[in-house]
C-alpha cells in the first residue's frame, strides 16, 4: 500500500526562484546565507526517505487560473506539468512528471469524501509549486519524484477556512493510504509565513504568530484550525493566509508525527520564511 512518509513546508517567494540557480555562490552572501543554510537537513531527510511521489499543495498566483473561473480546490491529473512566464522575469523551470493513476485515485476518493475538486488534465504550475520543488530537489531533475499539484484558492475571497483545508489534507491522506501500489509519498505545503504585499499595511510581519504556528503545527494542528480566514489575515497578513496550505499538508499526516527540522528567518523579499520537515511514522 502507498504511505505518506512525511510532510514538508517551505515559503515559495519568487525572489527565491531567481536565487536558486545561484545557491552555491549566494550561500555565502549575508542576505541569503540564513535562508539557504536551513535547507541541507531537509534535503538529507528526503534523500533518506526516498519518496516516489510529492503531492504539492500550493496556490496559483495568476498563471494557470484567472478570475473567469476560480476553483476553490483543484487537482492535477496530467502526465506532465509545465511552468511558464509569470510576467516578472524569474527563469522558467524544467517540466515536472505527473502520476495520472494516483491522481485519479485521489480524485475518486476526494469526491467520495465530499470534496468536489476541479480536475485538471492541463495545468501550468507557478512559483508556488516550482520554488519548493527546486529548493528540496536542487539540480532540475527533482530527484526523479512524480508530482501531483493540489491548488487552493488564496486569490479571491471567500477562501476556504483553515479547518476545511485541514480536512482536505486528511482526505488526501486517506486517499493515499488506500492506494494499492507500494509508493512512498511526501506532502508539501508551500507559501507563508507572515507577509502582506498590498495596502498601507504592506510589509507587515508577525514573528510571534509565525513561531506559534511552527510550534503548534507539529502536534497540535487542531488549535490552528480554529482561526477564521479573517483572523489569519489579521495575524499573518493578507498573503500570510497562505498558511492554509501548510494546514492542508499537516492534515495528510495521520501517523506518529515528529519534527525532523525547522527554520525561521525574517525576511526574504517581503516575507518571513519558514521551513518545517515532519516525519510521519506508521
Amino acid at each position: 500500500m502507498a504511505r505518506v512518509v512525511g510532510g514538508l513546508t517551505t515559503s515559495h517567494i519568487p525572489a527565491i526562484g531567481n536565487a536558486v540557480p545561484r545557491e552555491k555562490e549566494l550561500v555565502n552572501d549575508p542576505y541569503w546565507k540564513p535562508f539557504f543554510a536551513a535547507y541541507p537537513p531537509a534535503r538529507a531527510w528526503l534523500q533518506k526517505a526516498k519518496p516516489d511521489v510529492a503531492i504539492v499543495i500550493y496556490n496559483d498566483h495568476g498563471l494557470n487560473f484567472f478570475l473567469d473561473k476560480m476553483p476553490t480546490f483543484a487537482i492535477g491529473a496530467a502526465a506532465e506539468y509545465r511552468n511558464a512566464d509569470e510576467g516578472w522575469g524569474i527563469p522558467t523551470t524544467p517540466p515536472f512528471q505527473g502520476d495520472q493513476e494516483l491522481s485519479w485515485h485521489i480524485i475518486e476518493s476526494l469526491v467520495h469524501d465530499e470534496f468536489d475538486v476541479t480536475t485538471c488534465q492541463e495545468m501550468l504550475v507557478d512559483h508556488g509549486f516550482t520554488v519548493p520543488m527546486s529548493l528540496f530537489w536542487p539540480g532540475n531533475s527533482y530527484g526523479g519524484v512524480k508530482t501531483i499539484p493540489v491548488c487552493i484558492n488564496t486569490v479571491q475571497h471567500p477562501l476556504p477556512s483553515p479547518l476545511r483545508c485541514f480536512k482536505l489534507g486528511q482526505a488526501i491522506g486517506r486517499a493515499v493510504e488506500s492506494y494499492p501500489k507500494d509508493l512512498k509519498v511526501v506532502v508539501l505545503g508551500t507559501g507563508g509565513m507572515s507577509h502582506q504585499l498590498d495596502g498601507e499595511r504592506a510589509g507587515f510581519i508577525n514573528k510571534k504568530f509565525d513561531l506559534l504556528c511552527l510550534d503548534k503545527l507539529v502536534n497540535e494542528p487542531e488549535v490552528l484550525t480554529r482561526y477564521s480566514i479573517h483572523e489569519l489575515v489579521r495575524e499573518a497578513g493578507a498573503q500570510g493566509a497562505e498558511f492554509i496550505l501548510w494546514l492542508a499538508m499537516r492534515g495528510a499526516l495521520s501517523g506518529k508525527v515528529t519534527k525532523v527540522h525547522s527554520s525561521y528567518h525574517v525576511a526574504v523579499s517581503n516575507t518571513a520564511t519558514g521551513l518545517l520537515v515532519l516525519d510521519n511514522a506508521a
Binding site: A202, L224, S228, H230, E231
Partner: peptide, 12 residues
Amino acid sequence: LVTHHDLPIPGT
C-alpha cells in the same frame, strides 16, 4: 488563540 472577528483590518 482565537482573537478578533470581523473588525476591519487597517490598511488591508
